[in-house]
Write a protein that binds this DNA or RNA. Sequence first.
DNA 1: GGACGTTCTGTTTTT
DNA 2: CAGAACGTCC
Length: 764
Amino acid sequence: MTDILEYLNNEQQQAVIHTEGPVMVVAGAGSGKTRVLTFRIAYLLQKGIDPFNILSLTFTNKAAREMKARITSLVGSEAKSVWMGTFHSVFARILRADGHLLGYPSNFTIYDTDDSKSLIRSIIKELQLDKKTYPVNSILGRISASKNNLIDSVQYNNDPEIIDADKAAGRPFIGKIFSIYDKRLFQSKAMDFDDLLFKTNILLRDFPEVLYKYQNKFRYILVDEYQDTNHAQYLIVKKLAANDENICVVGDDAQSIYGFRGANIENILNFKKDYQDIKVFKLEQNYRSTKNIVNAANGVIAKNKDQIQKEVWTANEKGQKIPLIKASSDTEEGALVAHSIFETKMNNQVSNKDFAILYRTNAQSRALEEALRKRNISYKIYGGLSFYQRKEIKDLLGYFRLVINPNDEEALFRVINYPARGIGKTSQQKIIIQAQRFEVSSWEVIYNPNAYGLDVSGAVKKRLYEFVTMIESFSAQLKRKNAYELAKHIAKTSGILKQLNDDKTPEGISRFENVEELLNAINEFSEREVEGQENSIRPLDEFMQDVALLTDQDNEDKNSSDKVSLMTVHAAKGLEFPYLYIVGLEENLFPNMQALNTRSELEEERRLFYVALTRAEKMATLSYAESRYKWGNLLFSEPSRFLEEIEQEYLSQPFKPGVGKHLNKPLKESRESTKDHSKYKKIPSTPTNQQQKKEEASSNEGTFHSSSMDELQVGSRVEHKRFGVGEILSLEGQGPNKKATVHFSSVGQKNLLLKFARLKVIKE
DNA sequence: GGACGTTCTGTTTTT
DNA sequence: CAGAACGTCC
């Protein structure tokens, strides 16, 4: 047995060997946080603690896997029995085991955000509410915030304060939507992301025997990224740890960047109040970055009010000053960044994988991709539309979901008429209506249409019968066939493969390939043997269990080839790169406009920038563009205030703020009182805002008219949002893809594809 | 019922 | 600009 402690510095050792009682490790960026967690678990195991008694909650499943591998290499294979994973995946597992107490079967479906939104959309429609007054996103946000604070729909509707707030915002029916939403989830035997935490809380609250069971099992609990836990997660941890109080939380308040998801920075700030005899260890030495980067980053958050006092320092070399790239447009920004990567590669003899480009929003990746492609630099995008969210993938997964849990309503209506089999919208509506009338799932209705008085033609009934029979035949094979065989059988029999194969457009081919890739992944899963159960079949439901919880980060890098990484700052958490580019440093983009309402929101944006900077080892380059295309509009921007907030001495060239001033909105103090913070987390944007915009636009009526295709003719005077007034010189082509050459007085001639061009005919 | 065309509408970060 | 929603026609 090796003495694993010799790998650690003094501070880290202390945090590792203090195994009993509550421990908080406040770990600055790059200070070896993961190392401490890993070694702490290894140390526990070496001490003879049963791996079965350890629970480790990490931020991504990938982090858990890597930690496990590391621990295995330190102390051997017993590490494999430690429970490790994200909050969501660990508690999904618990709910699959004990959720029956709450009325859920173990094969319940996990609805992802798309499923939730789609359900809410249909509820709003059924209630005949105006979707502009009830925007799906904010409704879901409201429900989510509520669940994260352990307020269910009944409490929501009984809380006069909440109801009054909704009424005041002109949306009295949110509570009703919430109730129906939850009822429908339950009928579908499904849980949304927030339910995984919410229901776990209920389970532990209402069933003491379950609580005891897990308290007894998890004698040692470790939580990573504690600064990003929300109230529901906080409570679960607190309950589980209540007996032994062998809890170790690791985090960095300066890296709390998930406030929008209900993360409550108070959790870490107040940890001391929750436990007595708590030991606090601070890891302040940064091993990752140069002095310049560490100091610049420290300066950015120094202005924040909410923080735990600590001083991150480094013994590393000073390093070079931070270069600043100023571009005129997003295209140029991409080109300059690509150029800089090219040069740096040459000058330092390093490879693509040593580089990363971080941005605030996913949409920014496009210009960068193009620039990199032009220079033949290969890259990989993390996040964005994840593989599992693509339409063709969700369609096939829809079949799998339905086979496993026929009550899954979202899956049912996704696939009931795809590929087309003559069960159209009207019939689907009728099914839903009957299902709701009898308060059963839609599957029940189509399974037994006569019993529920489903009023559709005989032909449709026949098609429904065929559909039900097909799904049932799949279900019957669930335990008999391995995941791959069944998946392939379903893909063929359902007609999905054929449908996709018939589409020979480039997009169609790529969709087909995606489906093949999914099938390959399932094949790999089927063939991977699980220790202790060799020769046993690995069925499809096992594969599907936490597909909804997989993130792009979790996809193993099969070709861990030499590529530049592109991702959002959020996705970069926990990662590090020798050469880093942070792009789009423009006021309103980063810091983000939507996030600039309260002081604490600005502070979170600063922490986000801090996280970004501290990912860099040798060099961090910043860039901004003076203008940028967004939704087809050219927008001009001010350099980000963050550039001014970095001390001059850390930048390689002087930065002077532009002539214009930031449109500094006065920042409101957020409700930080204590208890009810996120109950009213975001006051949703008032409908009046949007109505006003509409009215402004329509005040032009009389002069312009929204034009249909054939109003556009050679010689027509037209107006374009961006280019102004012009005249159509020529038209070419038929149908939707007409091309027009238009002369605009402001910019000269432009060729426009009419399908996308917004031209308004000016009527005399 | 379904295909195909037109119009409208997002507009942050993610488990 | 892209995708969803809506409208029209067979």
